[in-house]
Design a protein around this nucleic acid. Sequence first.
DNA 1: AATTCTACTTTGAAAAACAAAGTTATGCCA
DNA 2: TGGCATAACTTTGTTTTTCAAAGTAGAATT
Lengths: 98, 98
Amino acid sequence: MNPIEHLNKTFDHRIRLGIMSALLVNEEVNFNFLKELLGVTDGNLASHMKSLEEAKYIKVKKGFIGRKTNTTYHVTPSGEKAFANHLEALEAMIRQVR
Amino acid sequence: MNPIEHLNKTFDHRIRLGIMSALLVNEEVNFNFLKELLGVTDGNLASHMKSLEEAKYIKVKKGFIGRKTNTTYHVTPSGEKAFANHLEALEAMIRQVR
DNA sequence: AATTCTACTTTGAAAAACAAAGTTATGCCA
DNA sequence: TGGCATAACTTTGTTTTTCAAAGTAGAATT
C-alpha cells in the first residue's frame, strides 16, 4: 500500500538521479561532462559524487587522456541493482496513478 | 540531453511523491490516512502538505464525518498537470536507461 | 616562471527536514 | 460539568542536507 517504501533515499535528489542515469546511459563519464550536463558547480557535484561513492553505488577511475588527468566514473553492480530497484518502485507508483 | 531538466523540484522528495500519488489514486484522502500510509509525524506531514499547498498543487477541504471534523485533500488541476509532467520526465529518464 | 586546467576539498551559509511539544476546536463519557 | 481524547494543525528548535565560493595540488601549457 505505502507507495514510497521501496524508494531509495539516496536517489531522492534530482541531481543524484541525473548522475546515475548519465552513468548508465554513457559508458564513459567524466567530471566535466557531468558538471555541464547537470549544470552544477564543482563543489556541489563533488559532494553528490561522494555520497554516491560512500553508498558504494559508483566507483572512480583515475586515468589519463594523453598526459592529462581524466577521472571517469562508473556504476558498481550494487549501484546498478539499487538504481534498478528504485526505478521499478517509481514505475510501480506511476502505474498506480495511471 | 540533460536528464533532469524537466523534473519538478517540488516532487524531489519521497514523501511529497507519496502524497501526490495517494491523492491521485484515492478520491478521498484525509490527514490521518496519509500520516499512517507514509509513516510520518504530524508536523512533518503538515509541513509537506503546506509546501504542496503553497505551490497550489493541492487544496484542503474541511468537512465533517457526522459531527466530527474531517480534513480531506485533493489535487488541483495544475497539480495534476505538474505531477503528470514530472512522471513523464521520470519515464523519459527510465527509458533512456533501459 | 607564471598561468591554466582538472578534480577535487574545505568552509560556511542557507534551506530543508524533522520530532516534539503546544494549540484550538470539538467529541465523548461518566 | 469536568476530564480525557482526537483531529489537524502550528511553533520551536535541532539536525541534516544542499550548495556556492574559495582554496588546493599536481600536471600542462605558454
